[in-house]
């Protein structure tokens, strides 16, 4: 919030926050260019995920207790909602990757609503991009391994049982959507949701802050109240979106892996 108020326009007017102010954050330690807030939070999230999973699963009990219960619930969610629907009997083999993805993205996202930290790591496209890229490489590798290099492309671009002329149209579309658009949307969907969500929250919290604290006036106060109320409501909504996007990210990963293991058509 300090940064926001410092960066607010000097005039007496309210200025909506720009992406530049919100996302282009200066290094935490001056001179160490790479060590910015998202980097710190990304690493903190990794430590947190490892910590909580270690606490839960390092010595798992047959009768779960305490933190194991909670994290096991997350594991069950990933297994039953993400892995099994798309991977079937292969689900257990890929649970390690999918749980990592889900927990990682979820914690990265939730950083957006943790007080003081308040920055969704995934709103910097680099973080979703590396995950999506890893999945993409894995997808192509698995596809070629399990369906053969030629078979993979054949199954992808020439699904059997269609009239010949359709392939003229279908094959380029399938190629584009599977190999070029899919990884891009995989990353951008998460990034854009977090980016927009953070903008919304920042906008309404700045409205509240500006009209209730910086320039309190009889006419402005109601607007400030609206800003605060909307911030609260949207924080709840954001938490839902953050969870949903983490779920969707892991689900798409499972879908891509499943599609590569077995030809879809």
């Amino acid at each position: 919030m300090n940064a926001l108020t410092v960066l607010a326009p000097p005039a007496d007017q309210f200025g909506a926050p720009t992406p530049e102010e919100l996302f282009n954050l200066p290094p935490i330690i001056p001179g160490v260019e790479w060590f910015t807030k998202p980097v710190l939070l990304a690493l903190l999230s990794a430590v947190f995920v490892i910590g909580i999973c270690w606490a839960a699963f390092a010595n798992p009990k047959v009768v779960p207790r305490g933190v194991q219960n909670v994290v096991e619930y997350g594991y069950m969610f990933v297994r039953d909602q993400v892995a099994r629907p798309f991977l079937g009997k292969d689900a257990d083999r890929w649970m390690g990757l999918l749980v990592t993805l889900f927990f990682m993205v979820l914690v990265w996202n939730l950083m957006g609503v943790v007080p003081i930290l308040q920055f969704p790591v995934a709103s910097h496209i680099a973080f979703p991009a590396v995950l999506a890229l890893s999945i993409y490489v894995l997808k192509v590798y698995l596809g070629m391994k399990h369906q053969g290099a030629w078979g993979y492309f054949k199954n992808m671009m020439f699904p059997p049982g269609l009239p010949k002329p359709i392939y003229l149209l279908l094959s380029p579309i399938e190629f584009l959507s599977n190999l070029i658009i899919a990884p891009f949307t995989h990353a951008v969907r998460l990034f854009a949701n977090m980016f927009a969500g953070h903008m919304l929250l920042a906008f309404f919290s700045m409205v509240g802050f500006w009209f209730l604290f910086e320039k309190l006036s009889p006419l402005g106060a109601p607007i400030g109240v609206v800003g605060v109320v909307m911030t609260i409501i949207l924080t709840g909504f954001e938490m839902f979106i953050q969870f949903l996007q983490a779920f969707l990210f892991a689900m798409l990963a499972a879908m891509y892996i499943g599609g590569s293991l077995h030809a879809e058509h």
Binding site: P19, E33, W34
Partner: peptide, 16 residues
Amino acid sequence: PLIPHTYELVVGIFAF
């Protein structure tokens, strides 16, 4: 915002 920072890519892949 669509152009990733290289150091973030590295940190991201490292963390992952």
